[in-house]
Simulated scan of single mutants.
Amino acid sequence: MEKDTKVYIAGHNGMVGSAIWRTLEAKGYTNLIGASSSELDLRNQLAVQDFFSTEKPKVIIDAAAKVGGILANNNFPYEFLMENMLIQNNLINTSLQLGIEKFIFLGSSCIYPKFAPQPLREDYLLTDSLEPTNEWYAIAKITGVKACQAIRKQFNKDYVSLMPTNLYGINDNFDLNTSHVLPAMMRKFHEAKLNNHSPVTLWGSGTPMREFLFVDDMAAAVVFALENKLPEYLYNVGTGEDLTIKELAETIQKIIGHQGKIIWDSTKPDGTPRKLMDISKMHELGWKHKVNLENGIQKTYNWFLQNEGKYKEVKI
């Protein structure tokens, strides 16, 4: 891959997209393009076609999606299904129509069945039912994976799907109505610390196990896929290590310095009991994560402290 190859990063202002942009710039790539949602509505097929025809990118990285936690997925199932399908289908189909040879599609570990054996292997896809609290998002992402697989099979183009585990890091979303578990916890513990170390109430029992990957490591995996032709259509990306939600909470609490009580609200759903990724395929190809969880949480908290002002308007 030449360093002046024009690379379009869909979702370049988001946590994942901005990390990919930073990583590519650091590696010397000089022809990166992006467009904010106000400049380009990815749900609009004609707008996407016009943008691609004008800009003529050579590589597409799809890091754009409507995302959220259990609460958001439960409350807005249609939007999570339809908007994600519109975004990815417009990007994938336009890329095929314009002859773009390389497309990297980013999904989520929620594409795998709720009770699939652990760790989750790529060939478990579509072998059983999904987790009900986020099946709408998962179904959308599965259609993206299968579309890229079909193009790969029928047209022999280098369209590959990367399925990350739970991501966190710089530019994360800390809005308590739409954020994922790690940034939501971080904000709750931080604000409780400022409020005389008041108690923090967290959803569920704390027993489910989760795996977390620092977003810069995910970006490195995307660059790895960019610079190499991966032999298969689907790859998991993660650390291969997990911990309980309770252990996660205690780790975040320690790093932030909150000394109050943690209350677990067992009336709220836990979600999938365990989601650990089998990442042996990526390891065999030569990619491996570098940032451990504590260091990643510390880096994220440092960024949060520098950007705390934008979250002060919402009270817990």
Rank of each mutant, 00 (worst) to 15 (best):
A140S: 13
I256M: 06
N196D: 14
T94I: 10
E101Y: 14
H180C: 02
G28V: 13
Y137V: 04
I262W: 07
F80D: 10
R187F: 09
K141I: 02
A184F: 01
W203L: 03
C148T: 06
L46H: 10
E247R: 01
E83Y: 10
T54H: 14
D278L: 03
T30E: 15
Q49G: 07
N75S: 13
F304A: 00
K281H: 11
K3F: 07
E25F: 15
N84M: 06
A140N: 03
C148V: 00
E313G: 00
E101R: 12
I70E: 03
R152S: 02
L42A: 01
R210C: 05
K246N: 12
C110W: 08
A184Y: 00
Q298M: 01
G260S: 13
A35S: 09
T5D: 06
T300Y: 02
K56S: 14
Y8T: 01
D278W: 01
N295Q: 12
H180N: 13
K56V: 09
I100Y: 03
I33Y: 08
V314Q: 12
L91F: 09
T300F: 02
I9Y: 02
Q306D: 12
I60V: 15
G238R: 04
N196H: 15
L120V: 09
V59A: 06
I100N: 04
E135K: 13
T94L: 06
T94W: 03
I256A: 05
K188F: 07
T30M: 11
K56M: 14
K290T: 14
D158I: 12
N156K: 15
V67T: 08
A219T: 07
W21M: 10
W203K: 05
L24D: 04
E79Q: 14
K3L: 09
P117V: 11
L96R: 02
I70A: 08
G238P: 05
I316W: 08
L120N: 05
F189C: 01
M209F: 12
L226C: 03
G144H: 01
N93F: 07
F103D: 04
W203V: 04
M185R: 01
E135D: 14
L106T: 01
R210F: 12
K66A: 05
G260R: 02
